[in-house]
Amino acid sequence: MAQESGTSRVKRGMAEMLKGGVIMDVVNVEQAKIAEDAGAVAVMALERVPADIRAQGGVARMSDPDMIAAIQAAVSIPVMAKARIGHFVEAQVLQSLGVDFIDESEVLTPTDYANHINKWNFTIPFVCGATNLGEALRRINEGAAMIRSKGEAGTGDVSNAMTHMRQIGGEIRRLTSMREDELYVAAKEMQAPFDLVKEVAANGKLPVVLFTAGGIATPADAALMMQMGADGVFIGSGIFKSGDPKRRAEACVKATTAFTDAKVIADASRGLGEAMVGINVADLPAPHRLSERGW
């Protein structure tokens, strides 16, 4: 075949290369360099980490292109950026800036309360959040090349990440035990395309890479998500809202690689200073739960 860009294989392949890694939220060049030095596989360039978006309120939008460009110039690892759910022009802008991955993210204020971005229209890959298998398959059907379980961003409370990983994993395991004629109803009930449901039932996994996000704050949190079957983790506020970001970043990278080795995780957890203070998800009033955004 002749040369082709933006194919499914090229987009999903990019996600494959990030596996086993930590993707860190950064708000400036200095943080991006700390993340790269600590061994991050990519950085997410944004103006405010989720904990600050939560604290300050207001409408959260795509970042300033100058800020994204400065981070692209400062590091050699992939740079991701967030667009609002359904805001396809923000996504067009991010693609024109040459970001390596777009996160159509519930952390920003949604633009469209019915539709997500048609991600097949883009050359660069997208990652989207999901709380259950149906939501993950709807995003893949729209062209997402990577899924991340949502968790509850900006809290430092890993309980929702756990719930979502259990939910997605449990639903996948149930599909693999069904007869083919039962998959039609399963597809109807989870509001997902039948072909994708059938593919998941046959392979016992999503057709794209699955990362975890939302509330990861310690090396043990990262390893927990890896043991739950995540291919890698996103850490948002957990690093740069902690007492010693450099050490915590290195420790989370180490624990994500050696996620089954409790001795390594113990070593990585020593003397990290203060973790981000955090908020219990149960104390958040419903309108402030970001994981409920996305349809």
Binding site: M1, Q3, S5, T7, V99
Partner: peptide, 15 residues
């Protein structure tokens, strides 16, 4: 040369 073919937007497949 690292990333010589460009960023992800330039990634491709070919025979």
């Amino acid at each position: 040369r690292r990333n010589a073919f460009g960023r992800q937007v330039d990634s491709f497949e070919s025979d």
